[in-house]
Design a protein around this nucleic acid. Structure first.
Lengths: 320, 320
DNA sequence: TTGTACGCGTTATCAG
DNA sequence: CTGATAACGCGTACAA
């Protein structure tokens, strides 16, 4: 590998002069600067990032960590993070679960953004420090070096259900997502609180546990059909499960929205084609906001409250 | 930052003893080993990857580079790469355009996999070497340290068109993707060659340039309608454009497949919901194959021919 | 079984 | 304007 020593030898100068040129310092004559630059180009030389950062004690690098490959909107989030970070002079490194752990532990990057259920709170808490802050997109942790940027699920779900109530729906079904996620808890709370406040009972036989994947929505409807009666409207904790549910209903020739109405959450790109009423989340903004926060944290700012991303209902014809 | 020196001091041993323990060498007594391990845990110590790899002269890290955030199947490819690499003891680092360049140039990783039109052939050629091989997923480059894993577009497109011909279609339209991509060239060649071999003329007024995005499919149909007559079947170089085309046709009350048939390519998850005939690509396998190749290259194997991923037609009711 | 000393590629300090 | 040298955190001969 061609290193700075090699360039120095080829240029007939010392290592430090090469370093000075490369780092744009003014204390080198124009002629030697040109010569060195030319030789660097000829040799296709680029400074070794490990040597550089070992010395500097840090990198200008942020790790983004995720692990669910079925949620296509992750790409939109990544785009938001990537743009914001590049604008601010940081490099973005995206990692899936295992590699992310390795990288986060090894003091390589300046901070991390995580959206990954598989990571434990414990892990984040022991790792975070002033020199390595963390921004979480899927949970809240109370810690000076950890901040959050999350979707504000509760009010929008509450509003969705309120409109459904106003339209006269009385028998509600619900398909939930991963049990212990913040998303799922908030969405269900919004749903339940709204019903309660409207004095509408929610029958537990109409509640189903899902896992955010299509198949679990499908299965929920199968169970529902075994039990006999249908609710008037089926609220789903995300689009994929709603799509699975729609699939099962179609197979049984149950018409949407004539026989049953259905709603999703996320506004995945399939939702539009399927005509599914859902909640749309500004993913790009979500990502860029997380990036902004991690930079503030790195710069030593104190961040108190989590940032809540506002979501909006998209009414389509899956609701009567 | 707590470093190996700190651990050594706390344990009352030398640096090398700590290093020996951490790297699982047998020349340390069980008791000191235990003591050191305990202290590492207490101090939450993890070796600095930069120091480690600077010494080793390499990392066990592969960079995957992409830049188009609208193609949701990228996540499937990433999953394939990630699984395969983790199984083989490598860490995966995913980067978007700019950060990827920085990382690839800086001698950090052991190899790279790229699927990014924005990268130039030139860049790959000057960078690749025995100690830094590259696998390309979107093009072919003839170079000892570069190999390719690409979708075999030609035969499947040929087959698709042949079946359409057999069904009696005579007037074909085509919406192409990014002009200079391998994908696009191969798909169009397969299309054109099949028509030619069947003595079916292709009228240039039915050819449209697109960019793989939905909007360009929409626009193509708008132009088509201005020109007056419709082809019997519209073959699109990918699903997104086909979906845009369908959108425009719907707005004009042109029925699919009664008035016009339409096909896509990619089998994006919307295609199924939309009932679009398309070509399905094993993305996961595609990714894991690319990962296998980069590892072989790193291990010094000579790879001649590019690996071609086989795709398959999915007939749905967008075709009469 | 443990410790000393050196080198990996880079930057920064300071002397010339 | 230029160069010698120490330091960053780690691994590894080699010596003890």
């Amino acid at each position: 590998m061609v290193d700075i020593k090699e360039i120095a030898k080829l240029s007939g100068v010392s290592i430090s002069t090469v370093s000075n040129v490369l780092n744009g310092r003014k204390n080198v004559s124009a002629t030697t600067r040109e010569r060195i630059l030319k030789i660097c180009k000829e040799q296709n030389y680029h400074p070794n990032i490990m040597g550089k950062n070992l010395k500097a004690g840090k990198t200008n690098t942020i790790v983004f960590n995720f692990s669910d490959f079925d949620r296509s909107f992750y790409l939109k989030i990544i785009e938001g993070i990537s743009d914001q970070l590049n604008d601010s002079g940081y490099d973005l490194i995206i990692c899936t679960h295992k590699s992310a752990e390795n990288l986060m532990k090894s003091n390589f990057s300046s901070g991390a953004i995580s959206l990954d259920v598989k990571m434990s709170d414990e892990f984040f808490i022991t790792l975070s420090k002033r020199k390595f802050p963390i921004v979480l997109m899927d949970r809240l942790i109370d810690n000076p070096f950890i901040s959050s940027v999350v979707v504000d699920n509760y009010p929008v779900m509450y509003e969705l259900v309120q409109v459904l109530v106003n339209r006269g729906f009385k028998k509600f079904g619900y398909i939930g997502g991963w049990k212990n996620t913040l998303d799922n808890k908030e969405r269900f709370s919004g749903f339940l609180d709204c019903l309660t406040n409207n004095n509408i009972p929610f029958e537990s036989k109409y509640y189903f546990d899902g896992n955010y994947h299509e198949e679990s929505g499908y299965q929920a409807v199968i169970q529902l059909l075994v039990s006999g009666t249908l609710p008037e409207v089926l609220v789903c904790a995300n689009d994929d499960m709603a799509l699975g549910a729609i699939q099962a209903l179609k197979e049984k020739n149950i018409k949407i929205p004539e026989d049953i109405s259905i709603t999703g959450f996320d506004d995945s790109n399939i939702a539009e084609v399927a005509g599914l009423t859902t909640v749309t989340i500004p993913y790009y903004e979500n990502g860029s906001m997380a990036a902004k926060r991690i930079i503030e944290l790195i710069e030593g700012k104190q961040l108190e409250a989590p940032y809540k991303i506002r979501a909006k209902i998209k009414w389509r014809n899956s609701v009567r």
